[in-house]
């Protein structure tokens, strides 16, 4: 995408004069008008500054599942770190530079006999410091409704078929308490280093709707 800047006079227009940014070239909606109005009023009342809004978006954009993958890979190679992660995931992820603030983060471990799945039935609570913004499906009514009553059926839709002997545990997040799944280290990865291991860790494997890649 060509470089664009919020204050550029041809915001949203390509060099040939056509709009190229999907969010900006469709008809202005009622709710978009509300967002603009609310933001401007907050700025005028001195509650926030435009710079703070821009910085917050930058912070949000910088977070990705790569953060969580680094934490998982560290836990796979360092038993002491893994113990700290399972004891207090907020502190352990802060150790690696991924601060979750005052929220409590709980890491739940997948094993040969237990598979963990994370949902937020109320809204969309998610370990954003480790995974970035939640995917759309995480926020859908379908996922939030069904994850707690038929998790195995939901998992099948994601292509995860678990043997009957594996117990499925579903964790419902709250505003103050978030979960992240520590997936089981795949077989055949003994020779891999931490960075190679992190590359196997997918976003969905840390939500529980997927499994790590195999080398």
């Amino acid at each position: 995408m060509p470089h664009d800047h919020p204050s550029h006079s041809h915001e949203g227009m390509s060099p040939s004069g056509h709009p190229y940014r999907a969010d900006n070239d469709t008809a202005l909606t009622y709710w978009q008008r509300m967002e603009i109005a609310v933001r401007e009023l907050l700025v005028e009342k001195g509650a926030v500054t435009p710079e703070e809004v821009a910085r917050q978006i930058d912070t949000m954009d910088a977070r990705s599942p790569a953060n969580g993958a680094a934490v998982v890979a560290r836990a796979w190679v360092d038993p002491d770190f893994k113990a700290r992660l399972l004891q207090d995931a907020s502190a352990a992820s802060r150790e690696m530079g991924f601060d979750i603030g005052p929220l409590r983060l709980i890491a739940v471990e997948n094993t040969e006999s237990v598979h963990n799945l994370i949902v937020c039935t109320l809204c969309s609570c998610y370990p954003r410091n480790l995974l970035g913004l939640p995917p759309d499906w995480y926020k859908t009514r379908a996922y939030r409704s069904r994850a707690v009553i038929e998790p195995r059926a939901v998992l099948r839709e994601f292509g995860v078929e678990l043997p009957d002997h594996v117990q499925v545990r579903v964790h419902d997040s709250t505003a103050d308490m978030r979960y992240v799944v520590l997936p089981a280290r795949p077989a055949g990865t003994e020779g891999l280093d931490e960075a190679e291991l992190a590359a196997l860790v997918t976003r969905d494997s840390m939500i529980g709707t997927g499994l790590p890649r195999t080398p």
Partner: peptide, 19 residues
């Protein structure tokens, strides 16, 4: 079924989140 469509967040959506 759980819908799997994913969209990139629009600027206005990111601003709502930031606010």
């Amino acid at each position: 079924p759980v819908p799997t469509d994913q969209h990139d967040f629009a600027l206005w959506e990111k601003r709502v989140d930031a606010l």
